[in-house]
């Protein structure tokens, strides 16, 4: 589904990603872990197509197609979703209106008609129940005055609405209390199928107790230096990142 080869990317001439290789197949859950500044968020931004970052070498393929040259919205239409670490506020635009626009833009890109209102409403009801979201919340301005937890829950709600093939969750656990973490994780797990994939970017092992990864990758200085199964996350939790730094240095 997603195949990243020797990816180098920089921002303002500063190289952040220095040769990433990663393959994600349908039905898989990957976790990318690493200390601050290792390039985790850059990787998610580059996959989503944020052009603040320049790809200097390597390639990103999605469903067999090179997506380097595609605009972010085109990547979204193909089924890439990014749950933002810091979701932005858009005053005066309700969550419902935003979702309606997003869904219909994607449908139009695929040559489909706008989603009928009753279908849209049914979907909103179903997905908001899944994430235990109060319907009143959906008529509020997007992310405006939302608590940290509400913002993250809203990101996953959008993911549920858009039904992406590949979801990248960037630090979705930050700002969540234990109940919200359970609800969000539960939502992600319920949305998982053999046809879609999830990449979880996180600092801590905590989230991975709920969203159990098939693979764990450790990102350090813009490279994946170690990959393993879910037990690697536990090891990292226990020992920190220093031992890997030493291991890599050796």
């Amino acid at each position: 589904m997603l195949k990243i080869e020797n990816l180098h990317a920089s921002v303002e001439d500063k190289e952040i990603l220095r040769g990433i290789n990663l393959e994600v197949k349908p039905g898989e859950v990957h976790a990318i872990m690493g200390p601050n500044g290792s390039g985790k968020s850059t990787l998610s931004s580059v996959i989503a197509g944020n052009e603040d970052f320049e790809i200097t070498k390597g390639s990103i393929k999605f469903l067999g197609e090179d997506i380097d040259a595609l605009a972010p919205e085109e990547r979204a239409h193909k089924g890439i979703f990014l749950s933002f670490q810091y979701p932005v506020e858009i005053p005066g635009v309700s969550v419902t209106n935003f979702m309606k626009t997003a869904i219909n833009e994607s449908r139009r890109a695929q040559g489909l008609e706008d989603m009928p209102a009753n279908e849209m409403l049914r979907k909103i009801r179903e997905k908001s129940e899944l994430l235990e979201i109060d319907r009143k919340f959906l008529s509020r301005s997007l992310n405006q005055g939302f608590s940290g937890g509400e913002k993250k829950r809203n990101e996953i709600f959008q993911m549920a609405m858009l039904e992406p093939k590949l979801a990248i969750l960037d630090e979705t656990d930050s700002g969540l209390d234990i109940d919200a973490l359970r609800i969000v994780s539960n939502g992600v797990n319920r949305l998982k199928s053999k046809d879609n994939a999830v990449v979880v970017i996180t600092h801590y092992q905590r989230l991975l107790e709920y969203i159990v990864p098939d693979f764990v990758h450790v990102l350090l200085n813009g490279r994946i230096v170690k990959s393993g199964g879910k037990e690697l996350a536990l090891e990292l939790e226990e020992k920190g990142y220093d031992w890997i730094k030493q291991e890599v240095a050796v």
Binding site: A48, G49, A71, P72, E73, A76, H77, F81, L82, F84, P87, V88, I90, F98, T101, A102, I103, E105, S106, A109, Q158, L162
Partner: peptide
Amino acid sequence: YCNQRGID
């Protein structure tokens, strides 16, 4: 943010 949700 909008682009990422498929909105040009």
